[in-house]
Design a protein around this nucleic acid. Sequence first.
DNA 1: AAAGATCAGGCAAGCGCTTTCCTGAGGAGC
DNA 2: GCTCCTCAGGAAAGCGCTTGCCTGATCTTT
Lengths: 344, 344
Amino acid sequence: MATLSDVARRAGVSPATASRVINGSSKPVTEELRERVLRAVADLQYVPNAHAQLLARSHRVAVGVIVHDVSDPYFAEITRGLQRVATDQGRLLTICNSYRDPDRELEYVELLRGQQVAAIILAGSGYHDATFTSLLNEKLAAYEATGGRVAVIGRHEHSGDAVMPDNRAGGRLIGAELYELGHRAIGVVAGPAVLTTTTDRLTGLRESLAAHGLSLPAHRVRHAEFDRDSGVAATAALLDADPELTAIVALNDSMAIGALALLRSRSVAVPRQVSVIGFDDMPIARDVTPALTTVRLPLVDMGARAMSLALDPGAAVPRVEILPAEVVRRDSTGPAPAPTTRVR
Amino acid sequence: MATLSDVARRAGVSPATASRVINGSSKPVTEELRERVLRAVADLQYVPNAHAQLLARSHRVAVGVIVHDVSDPYFAEITRGLQRVATDQGRLLTICNSYRDPDRELEYVELLRGQQVAAIILAGSGYHDATFTSLLNEKLAAYEATGGRVAVIGRHEHSGDAVMPDNRAGGRLIGAELYELGHRAIGVVAGPAVLTTTTDRLTGLRESLAAHGLSLPAHRVRHAEFDRDSGVAATAALLDADPELTAIVALNDSMAIGALALLRSRSVAVPRQVSVIGFDDMPIARDVTPALTTVRLPLVDMGARAMSLALDPGAAVPRVEILPAEVVRRDSTGPAPAPTTRVR
DNA sequence: AAAGATCAGGCAAGCGCTTTCCTGAGGAGC
DNA sequence: GCTCCTCAGGAAAGCGCTTGCCTGATCTTT
């Protein structure tokens, strides 16, 4: 690999001069030398060693983000927002997939710290796990102590800049919506109980049902992974245990799509017999049949804001931006059926 | 940020010794010193500077991949395969989104070179663009000359290790399938004409139609971006110009989903009036309605193999693995309608 | 008991680059 | 014609780490 000194030698100048023309330093260099250096760079196909540069300037430029899984549309959208702002500001984004493994999350914080990133963004859900949380906070604190910036998306115990989708309000919207449509027997296909995202959404839902005197018994809530196939299984279990249900709430769209698939396979008409409502409004939601009613979260915007917070020199007090959720009505929800038309 | 010397000083040893215990060097260190160092590491929350390490050892460990867009399910799947093998081998994966911009692709090659990656994987489609191609090859050659490994997915002019989905055979399968079903008036919703993926699939389709004496006139092929909304627009244009069509071939699933959406909005029954067939078999294909008939490509496997090739010390001759395509029959295709039931 | 072997630990060079500070040459001013 | 200033270019230190080589101490051998 050609080095700076190779370039300098070939151009007949010192490495200092070569460095200056290559990086467009403010220090003036004669046109002639400049050209000789540029020619040498081209001849040698020289590319600066990024690590050496990073070491020499002590000025961190990259930013790291830890997500559960970028190929999950939820995170794909958030990442798009992060990426946009990062690129605008000439920052490199390193993406780490934790695959919902808390240990891996911790490892990645260290890794990013070692990479000398300027900021770390935590985009996944928080965990209900005190040991993990305190370990994470310790590591983040150590990072922040050395001037690193941290921003989180969603509820984490970390006290600092944060972007918070209003999951709880979203849950409430779902409850209100279904109540209005006359649903009284509601089943919930929930994500892992250990995630704050799950519990927040569930809490909101419970609140609004309670406001109407309805309760949500534990057997009508099934926890599973936040993916399509788990949605299928959980919906099946729910329906088998409780054929009276007239509405299924899935706590994310992937699971809702699973619910739709299961209902179709059992020839249950949606929304005539059972209504289905999702959460997140990922792009595909409008293309399934029936098109999915869901709660929209401004995912791209959440990413963009988190990155802005992370790159903005920290304010004295933590900044918390709460982003609203809203119902998007499509075709998978309808009035609760009259008793005679109920499933079975 | 705490440095190695800080740790060494606190432990009362030389940096050399500290380095040795931290990295588990083969050189023996007394138990007592080892413990002192480890304690200092913990006290200081020391994390080695990855860039300094990389500079000191000259041993590259990261791998870079350039894709069009990870949030596109096609690349998400491929990336999953890449990631799996990379992780198994203890490699870090840097993902770069070119967003189908050739210039950005070139930049990323340089960037990855500067990052000292051990290998570069090109996962996007090739371009029909001689200038770009030769520029790219030049850059890749320069990289390979310094010991870097390169593997490509799909057809590129690069002569080296490659994983090739059999796009052309896939195109032929589509032609055969539709012909069997009696379709004679076929429209194609194609991707950008500049991508080899598009032209290969189209070539295969043309071949099999030609084998049955059918031709595919230019006005029945609409080129657009490889995404859902472009699929909507292209399908609309196709149908407006040619209401006789009984089948729509979309050259990827995103566009096929767009086609389905448009047909639904026009109340055209699929597959009774018009059949739709896609390409790629992304996960969502089975969940749209009607479930999408498509050509399956082993995406995850393609990624895994490409990474294996890239990490395997190069063979003397380029290795090319061709992965087969296969038709997945679902509900969006059916027999061509009798003339009377045709659209309009 | 003396000489050689063995071994833990430290010294220092060097990875490729940036940047401060210095030098020497040319130009301006008297 | 001499001094002083200006300015382009180079020398060298240093970013944080690894590792080959050397040293001094302890152990083995006859």
